[in-house]
Design a protein around this nucleic acid. Structure first.
Length: 591
RNA sequence: GGAGUAGUAGCUCAGAUGGUUAGAGUACCUGCCUGUCACGCAGGGUGUCGAGGGUUCGAGUCCCUUCUAUUCCGCCA
């Protein structure tokens, strides 16, 4: 049915007979001659149908968009006036000897070259949406990335091993997707949030280097960069520490960017500690494409007669920080109001600012509703943040968490709005994460990474630590352009240390045994030191393919309510199925 | 759970202040056309104005409820 792909018929094949098959991209009927652009995965080629044969011509007249055809014909060079420089195959055309209609098509609900189609329509007809060149290209990029990952890891002695999809609910972490068991009454499987425990067990089994490109499931609300089922490149190694894992993972990422995106990082990825990242950027996944930092000014403003600033400045839990926007003085009142509105999302009660008109004029050169509250300190603050004429300096003063989130987000928003991105790519390792965080509602400690991460402390120190929330862990995240693309840690390989961590987390022996006793048990039988990492494949593809949404790099994604527009999943099931599972609804089904 | 935005023809959208028969482009259909490549020309409207309720003499427009999509907050070890 095919001697060549449409997109690969070039002038080299002139005067040759070819057979091509594909979809009718467009038909132009001139009455006496009909042009058909035929499309397959390699591209488009123009087919010319002349009226020299009535049967053939009649078929061409019947043809419509998206019909599937096989065309036999002769490749001919176009005359100079009819060459189409916009097409790769524009120097030639195929003069049809014979046309076969393999499949007709109803009028399609949207035109493939229309770039303004709503996502709702695209997802409902995803099989058509995926015909678009753009989507074909993205999925090809995705495949090239996974292929590169596999080759890189295979060459380094990593082995691909599958782990169960039907598994057990884990403590903490995200909400599980549950699957009722028919053979075990009242019991449920959980879909894995990640193969974390299995890959640790594989290390204990002696496989030494494991990887898997695998689906993970988390039943939480969606975002542009979050789907309830997503794909991870999951990796674990034995007898490697933080440094070795980070090095090999960095090499992997560089290889992917180089081979798939022709982007070459000729430097070591910078590293930043969690604490520094929060201090300078307000967030643990800093976008280093933007050259602005938060600057602490609390020490200068503790004693002023302006409670909005002085209060948080004196509060150990508070923070007063400034964000200097170079040349931000051009901002209008409305723009500033919009930013004030923006930070309110994060709980900020306001957004103070100082416009720097002319520093040489001293206080008179500063334009601001708040300078009058601290005339003595204002210039010192300006010096601290490095303000120059024409700048605008924003201030956040509140609980540290609020200031960090508000100014951190503001920094990125302004960076984008004012086109302040200084480079295309900014990878960075974030290291020295705290081991625990204090849950404000329950006042309990929770693991920031997961409870199997090794703290930077001995078992003794873990048990006797006076401020466990200050303890660091051997965890690391890889952040690119403000997006967390991967994270990992050194794991605990010692029974006593694992018990100590679980104890701090307030997980009882019984609970630990119920939920992952198999892991604790395995730890007893010779566990190698091991460490690993997992990459969010979808995010990595998104960033390399330069898309704004993870949905654009997944063939069949879910909507924000975790539904599939195409299959209309999730759906109702038969009563018979429910009764086999011994399940019943607590409320009547709404029609 | 919360905040914002959107929902009118197959698609993308217009439709101040409530007013007669709801429009445009495109797609589609019919006819014409032998060099187009977003072909062109002439003609044709194919509609549950997301759904339900309310106000009104009268609702695409106002009010309430609700559904869907999307962005964000919470959530996501």
């Amino acid at each position: 049915m095919r001697s060549h792909y449409c997109g690969q018929v070039t002038e080299k094949l002139e005067n040759k007979n070819v057979t091509i098959s594909g979809w009718v991209h467009r038909r132009r009927d001139h009455g006496g001659v009909i042009f058909i652009d035929l499309r397959d995965k390699e591209g488009l080629v123009q087919v010319v149908v002349n009226p020299d044969n009535a049967e053939k011509f009649a078929k061409a007249e019947k043809v419509r968009s998206e019909f599937v055809l096989t065309v036999q014909g002769t490749v001919l060079g176009r005359t100079a006036e009819t060459i189409n420089p916009k097409m790769n195959t524009g120097k030639i055309e195929i003069v049809a000897d014979n046309i076969e209609i393999l499949s007709t098509s109803a009028p399609i609900p949207f035109q493939l070259d229309d770039k303004t189609i709503s996502e709702e329509v695209r997802l409902t007809y995803r099989f058509l949406d995926l015909r678009r060149e753009e989507m074909q290209q993205v999925l090809r990029t995705r495949y090239q990335i996974t292929r590169t990952m596999r080759r890189f890891l295979d060459d380094k002695g990593f082995m691909d091993i599958e782990t169960p999809i039907l598994t057990k609910s884990t403590p903490e972490g995200a909400r599980d997707y549950l699957v009722p068991s028919r053979t075990h009454q009242n019991k449920f499987f959980a879909l894995p949030q990640s193969p974390q425990l299995f890959k640790q067990l594989l290390m204990m089994s002696g496989f030494d280097r494991y990887y898997q490109i695998t689906r993970c499931f988390r039943d939480e609300d969606l975002r542009a960069d979050r789907q309830p089922e997503f794909t991870q490149l999951d990796i674990e190694t034995s007898f490697m520490g933080e440094e070795e894992v980070m090095q090999i993972m960095e090499e992997l990422v560089k290889t992917i960017f180089s081979e798939v995106g022709s982007i070459n990082f000729e430097y070591d990825f910078p590293r930043i500690t969690y604490a520094d990242s929060i201090r300078d950027y307000g967030i643990d996944r800093p976008d280093l494409r933007i050259d602005m930092k938060l600057v602490d000014v609390a020490d200068l403003l503790q004693d002023i007669d302006f409670k909005v600033f002085a209060g948080p400045a004196k509060d150990p839990q508070g923070r007063v920080a400034a964000l200097r926007v170079p040349e931000g003085g051009k901002m209008t009142r409305k723009e500033i109001d919009d930013y004030t509105n923006f930070v309110s999302i994060y709980g900020a009660k306001g957004l103070a600012y100082i416009k720097v008109n002319k520093l040489a004029d001293g206080l008179a050169g500063l334009q601001s509703p708040i300078v009058k509250f601290f005339p003595e300190q204002a210039l010192e603050v300006m010096a601290r943040v490095g303000a120059e004429d024409g700048d605008l300096v924003f201030f956040g003063a509140d609980k540290a968490k609020i200031v960090n989130e508000a100014l951190g987000a503001l920094r990125c928003k302004i960076g984008e709005d004012l086109a302040m991105l200084e480079k295309d790519w900014a990878p960075v390792w974030v290291v020295d994460f705290p081991m625990f965080e204090l849950d404000e509602q329950t006042a309990r400690l929770a693991a920031i990474h997961h409870p199997f991460t090794q703290p930077k402390a001995t078992t003794e120190e873990i048990l006797n630590h006076k401020a466990p929330e200050q303890m660091l862990s051997k965890a690391y995240d890889l952040v690119i352009n403000g997006l967390e693309v991967g994270g990992g840690s050194v794991r605990i390989h010692d029974t006593d240390m694992q018990a100590a961590v679980l104890k701090l987390l307030g997980i009882s022996d019984k609970e630990a045994n119920d939920k992952f006793g198999f892991l604790l048990n395995a730890l007893k039988y010779g566990c190698p030191p091991h460490a690993g990492m997992a990459f969010g494949l979808d995010r990595l593809v998104m960033i390399i393919a330069n898309r704004d949404s993870i949905r654009d790099v997944i063939a069949f994604p879910k909507t924000q309510s975790a539904a599939c527009m195409l299959t209309e999943a999730p759906g109702l099931v038969d009563n018979e199925q429910l009764s086999e599972l011994d399940l019943r609804f607590r409320k009547p089904i709404k029609e």
